[in-house]
Design a protein around this nucleic acid. Structure first.
Lengths: 242, 242
DNA sequence: TCGCAGATCTTACGTCGTAAGTTGAGTCTT
DNA sequence: AAGACTCAACTTACGACGTAAGATCTGCGA
């Protein structure tokens, strides 16, 4: 996709071109020369707006910004503050959808020294929802830490147990099965369960499950009381164990 | 650190050298030429054992292997199966310690197309612990998905709210504070809380808190019964809301 | 009309991964 | 013991990358 109407460059146009390249060809293809080609100019012309590091930082900024927008739009402002878990859940799922559209993004975000400022509106909204629901700032703070990785896409399919076909058991696969009986059994169960779904693991369901664990745990802490959220961890643990 | 006694090359020696470079100078410094220099040979000599992709994959394999070893060693084999949460918790914390020793590792692991096979022993141990405690394979499976990112280091300090000094408020910082009152208030609380700790956020405590949320949630599911772990999510949520 | 300032292009350098071909030290045959 | 075969290690070379330095172009106020 070379060339387009000759229009003056700008930081935004450069970043848009970079995003285009990343979506089409992956992050490694985002080179100064390749982006310049899309903009129908020379690589060195980009340096008036960004160098390579700033280009990748800007790309991160753009994706995270897209996440923030997606997570904040189209949300009924929560009729009842008590429904805070649903609001937060929907925001996290919206964030995940964006990340699934940009599969190259999570490793990129992970390499950045700082999360881009475009996350702050999202964090602000989450904290607001939780505090208004009576969570207290300490708990909201911890919640941001707990949910951050999920929002920023650090929860991807990092686990495809025995991704090969189950039929033709290679000798090494058999050796592994003998050495790790529990995992072998788990793989069997997973295969049995997976009839109907796409892959071996329904990553969407896993994501929602983990999200539910975290949200329910936070809600339990909220109930114990925001006064001493830090020290209350054991109390909650004891309560849930009854 | 150049040169050492001239000893025949091998895949292991190459990977060890790469690990050395990564620890000392970071992942970007791990180039074929730099690793060759450490081994006192030419870059092209390495290609009999690894190319660049395999080098990074091997590096990942090594770190994750180190995690697995650290998480499996030095653990009393759990006197009571009911203490499964403590066992799993200690394993996760041991994994985290390794990651803290290799801060360059998480982004590297995140870029790999597959997690290396060296994680499997760790997963096996976790599944064994949970199943023996009566969790059922479905729940153990979900647990692996929930805990995986924490074990593989995808929970790092991605959040340093207003990392700058709080005193000299820059104009843009003030503008931000006005636009995002909840975050501003949260930062105040965090600063107040942080007296005594090192940074603004006690990342170790945040990690342990999130880990506790997940483990307590899993335990709640275990109690509901492994029979229909998938459908039981709402039941658990309802229970914790009582 | 001129000249200046900022945007863009040209050229060039050092580093990267690695393809292709060469050297040299064992080892195995006869 | 001598020649042939093997394969780890080396040499050379190429294209792509990020970017420093300086030349050129363009538009606008004087």
């Amino acid at each position: 996709m070379p060339a387009r109407a000759k229009e003056p460059l700008s930081r935004d146009r450069v970043l848009a071109a970079a995003l285009e390249v990343a979506d089409a060809e992956g992050v490694p293809a985002v080179t100064m020369r390749r982006v310049a080609e899309v903009l129908d100019c020379e690589a060195m012309s980009l340096y008036h707006y960004v160098d390579k590091k700033a280009l990748l930082a800007g790309l991160t900024e753009a994706v995270v910004g897209e996440i923030a927008v997606a997570a904040l739009d189209d949300l009924p402002p929560a009729a009842d503050p008590a429904d805070w878990r649903d609001v937060v859940r929907r925001r996290c799922l919206a964030a995940r959808e964006v990340m699934l559209r940009h599969p190259w993004a999570p490793p990129l975000v992970a390499t950045q020294p700082q999360p881009p400022p475009t996350v702050y509106p999202l964090f602000e909204a989450l904290v607001a929802t939780m505090v208004d629901a009576g969570c207290g700032y300490e708990l909201a703070h911890r919640a941001i830490h707990s949910l951050g990785p999920m929002l920023l896409g650090f929860t991807q399919e990092l686990f495809e147990p025995t991704a090969d076909d189950e039929g033709a058991a290679s000798p090494q696969a058999e050796a592994m099965a003998l050495a790790m009986p529990y995992l072998a059994r788990l793989a069997e169960v997973a295969v049995h369960e997976a009839e109907g779904t796409i892959g071996l693991c329904d990553t969407q369901a896993e994501f929602e499950f983990t999200l539910g664990l975290v949200l329910d745990g936070l809600e339990a802490h909220r109930r114990v009381g925001a006064a001493s959220a830090v020290g209350a961890a054991s109390a909650v643990g004891a309560a849930s164990a009854v």
